[in-house]
Amino acid sequence: MRYLRSFWYDFIVGDSWETAVGVVAALGATWFIIEHHASLSEALGPLFAAAIIVIMVISLIRK
């Protein structure tokens, strides 16, 4: 069980917790906005991808 716990920790948090937190926040925010403004469902695609890029850049800067 210790190894499984270590696997999941390494898998989700790894050496960059910003990635996991950022992805969950970006997905949650996208879902929330589309739930309340369905007309934005197409426009949010590029913004969501841009958010992922920002998260990646932050995790690289904080290396």
């Binding site: 879902w31 589309i34 197409e42 695609g45 969501f48 991808a49 992922i52």
Partner: peptide, 13 residues
Amino acid sequence: TFWGGEGAGIEWA
């Protein structure tokens, strides 16, 4: 990104 976005409601152009 594609599937996560679709699951959240995004319609990819």
